[in-house]
Simulated scan of single mutants.
Amino acid sequence: MSTVDRVAIVTGGSGGIGGAAARRLAAAGTAVVVHYSGSAARAEQVVAEITAAGGQAVAAGGDVADPAAMAALFEVAEREFGGVDVVVNTAGIMLLAPLAEMDLDDFDRTLRVNVRGTFVVSQLAARRVRSGGALINFSTSVTRLQQPTYAAYAASKGAVEAMTLILARELRGRDVTVNAVAPGPTATPLFLEGKSAEVIDRIAAAAPLGRLGTPEDIAETVAFLAGPGGRWTNGQVLYANGGIA
């Protein structure tokens, strides 16, 4: 076991935003457990990038909606690095369709991963994150944009926001902050998939800053909440979206 001052778990760490958050936290001296669900190779790549830069990281898999699998994930952090201080819960799926046409199985999958998964990980974080720690869940700016085809996704993230804000109050006296980050359109493979250049340009132009966000933009918000500068920010939803909403 390597005991370090600060240890983070990043669920969905094999993804665009999760990987950027893991790398950013590692650059600040935090040891990171990079979680994945179906992308072990991408998670190992993130680990390799962190260790090549002089940081500490390991990869670990599991279904975020499975309490036993997530308990095992926390145990990896405790076994490898001595505990858990920061949990960044980026894992999620985005299945889009008009509400009237959406397959109910897709709706159920969305709720299972995004709502139940966030609940399971948040519950473990509430029980196991050390004093001075932080839980950072992920919502979306779509909750305020009311975009067609996003009903299921936005509904799931609305639930995430509600859980996050309530848990912040329930952890009174623990010195653990609980916040949510709500990105706007961000240039990740998940976002860019299936969109034409014209559509991407139109979405980018909607932001006052005239561009899409990058995973690194979102990672900076995560680093703020996870670090000493974010200790007085608690029970909030931070819209990291370049002013698009």
Rank of each mutant, 00 (worst) to 15 (best):
G29N: 10
F224P: 00
F119T: 10
M94H: 11
V10D: 02
V47E: 06
H35F: 05
R6Q: 15
G158A: 13
A52H: 02
G83S: 13
G184T: 08
I203A: 08
L96N: 02
A65W: 00
A100P: 00
V88S: 01
L212H: 10
T30H: 10
V47G: 03
A197D: 15
R174M: 08
A240H: 06
M163L: 15
G16V: 07
I9N: 04
V88A: 10
V34Q: 11
A205L: 07
G235F: 12
P183L: 12
K157R: 12
A77C: 10
L145C: 05
G117S: 07
A43V: 02
V86R: 01
P148I: 11
S139M: 03
A159D: 01
A152H: 04
R24N: 03
A219S: 03
D105M: 08
K157M: 03
V199R: 13
M70T: 12
V33S: 06
A240L: 08
I9C: 10
V46I: 14
E193P: 00
A65T: 01
T149D: 14
S156E: 04
V64I: 14
Q146H: 15
R231V: 14
I203Y: 01
A28V: 08
A226Q: 09
A65G: 13
Y239V: 07
G83D: 07
F191V: 06
V181L: 15
P148H: 05
V76M: 12
R174N: 01
G117Q: 06
V47F: 04
P98A: 13
V178D: 07
M102L: 15
V115G: 06
T140P: 08
V58Q: 09
I218Q: 07
G54I: 11
T164V: 02
G83V: 13
S156T: 11
I93D: 01
Y150Q: 10
G227V: 09
G184P: 06
A72C: 06
V199C: 00
G227N: 10
R6G: 09
F191T: 05
A65F: 01
T11K: 09
L95N: 04
G230D: 13
N89W: 05
L225D: 08
G242L: 09
G132Y: 05
T140V: 05
A27Q: 13
A22I: 01
A180L: 04
F119Q: 08
A125C: 13
F107Q: 00
L171T: 01
L104C: 09
L95Y: 02
V33P: 03
E193C: 00
R128E: 06
P98V: 11
R128Q: 14
A69L: 12
T221G: 10
Y239T: 03
E161N: 14
V34M: 02
R116G: 04
E101W: 04
D201M: 04
K195Q: 14
V76Q: 14
A48H: 11
D201A: 15
L73R: 07
E80P: 02
L212M: 13
A240R: 02
G55D: 05
A53I: 06
R112G: 03
E220T: 13
A26D: 07
T140R: 03
V88Q: 01
T233W: 00
A197K: 12
A21G: 01
A28K: 13
G54T: 13
A8W: 05
V222T: 09
V176H: 05
L225V: 04
G243T: 10
S39P: 00
G213L: 14
V7C: 12
M163N: 00
V47N: 03
T214D: 08
F107C: 07
